[in-house]
Amino acid sequence: MVVAEATSFQAAPTRDVSIDFHRFSFMGSGKEYFGIWIVNVFLTIVTLGIYSAWAKVRRNRYFYGNTVLLGRAFEYHARGGQILVGRLIVLGGLVILNVIATTVPILALLPTIAVIVAVPWLVVRGLRFNARVTSYRNVRFDFVGSVGGAFKAFILGGLLTLISLGLLAPIASRWIGRYVGSNLRLGGKSFHTDPPLLPLYRGMCIGAAFGVIVGIVMAAIIIGTVRVTALYEAVSPDYVTVHWVLAGAMYAVVLSVYGVATLFYRAAVRNAVWSASRFDEKHRFRSNLSRGRYTWIAISNLVVTVLSLGFLRPWAAVRMAHYTWEHTGVLIAGSVGTLVSDIEEQGSAVGAEFIEFEGFDFGF
């Protein structure tokens, strides 16, 4: 892998420790992934969805195996059976809860309460599973977060976002970033994440402003189109068509505004969280996604996927992976060789226990 100093990421000067910037890279191609994707789709349909668990494994192994840092790719070790069992457990639990709620009306709220209580536990299990089936340089990741932390980050954070109509979304994003990032481990060494609120709020405000601009432009185009249509309808007995067209168009505008604002904000969150993350208290991550470019790629990906009836979905997924990883990197303090040796030494001491204890993937 080519190692170069970043032009957009500048390390703070230091007298005692050399700091080098190393980018991630994604080596996959749309043509390669299409072969995997089309087989996954076909077998998932033929097996009425059962094969989707194995499809997820094949997809993740391809994307992890093509994500490279310092010349080595990541690996994904999950098995389809683990994912299928986890899904069946969740599905079975939901079916039982709904049957009870249906047969005993007084317990109608039981499924909702059970989900709220169970989600934090399922989130922890899911994050731990996904960490432990992922490795880098033959060293497994781990996740040590608590159920209480998951409840705060995902349940309380979601409620804050909901009741504030999105105004407190940056706080929820900060909680989630802290919880996930600061509870990751690799070879016995820890990660730490503490994103500041200012970049998150800035990203939300810029996203909302840009979304409103897009909405105004779309509304102007739609109103002009509807007015032309109305002139035609003025000599026709059918006036209902115009009203339905207008209602549908306004709904599309609202969705567009929300979608654009969300994509802008998602890019801002990724930049803020990754750039506030450290490994072993020394090595710092960086992300410099362009919010406008990220939004354009996501929207154009959706358009070409829809127009191609889904057949360009592999190309779109690979395109996004190339962009996000090429704008992500790590500032390594000291010798790369020393860092790699430390990781592999720690991994040999603590990684063996994960091989037989990965659990199940519950889809959270």
Results as ranks from 00 to 15, higher is better:
residue 127 L to R: 06
residue 305 T to K: 11
residue 139 V to C: 05
residue 70 L to W: 04
residue 164 S to E: 00
residue 361 D to R: 05
residue 160 L to H: 05
residue 55 A to W: 01
residue 33 Y to P: 06
residue 152 K to R: 15
residue 354 F to Y: 15
residue 259 G to T: 15
residue 173 S to R: 03
residue 226 V to N: 06
residue 331 L to H: 05
residue 110 L to G: 00
residue 230 A to Q: 13
residue 177 G to W: 05
residue 90 V to P: 03
residue 329 G to D: 03
residue 195 P to I: 10
residue 21 F to Q: 03
residue 184 L to C: 12
residue 15 R to H: 09
residue 183 N to A: 02
residue 213 I to P: 12
residue 221 I to M: 09
residue 72 R to E: 15
residue 102 T to S: 15
residue 73 A to E: 06
residue 139 V to I: 07
residue 349 A to M: 10
residue 333 A to R: 09
residue 337 G to Q: 15
residue 268 A to I: 07
residue 125 R to D: 11
residue 128 R to T: 11
residue 273 V to F: 06
residue 317 A to L: 12
residue 7 T to M: 13
residue 282 K to I: 04
residue 331 L to S: 09
residue 16 D to Y: 14
residue 245 V to W: 09
residue 287 S to N: 03
residue 336 V to M: 01
residue 8 S to L: 11
residue 259 G to K: 15
residue 358 E to F: 11
residue 216 I to R: 06
residue 298 A to K: 13
residue 99 V to G: 12
residue 268 A to D: 07
residue 34 F to P: 06
residue 78 A to T: 00
residue 76 Y to N: 03
residue 187 G to P: 07
residue 55 A to P: 00
residue 123 V to M: 08
residue 321 A to R: 03
residue 362 F to R: 07
residue 277 S to D: 01
residue 355 I to H: 13
residue 15 R to M: 07
residue 172 A to Y: 03
residue 145 G to F: 04
residue 29 S to Y: 02
residue 133 V to D: 00
residue 11 A to V: 13
residue 170 P to A: 06
residue 240 V to S: 10
residue 148 G to Y: 07
residue 125 R to N: 12
residue 145 G to K: 02
residue 86 G to I: 10
residue 129 F to Q: 05
residue 227 R to P: 01
residue 94 L to C: 13
residue 208 A to D: 09
residue 90 V to M: 08
residue 362 F to Q: 05
residue 50 I to D: 01
residue 228 V to K: 15
residue 59 R to K: 09
residue 198 L to W: 05
residue 270 R to H: 11
residue 125 R to T: 13
residue 18 S to N: 12
residue 5 E to G: 06
residue 308 S to M: 08
residue 154 F to P: 02
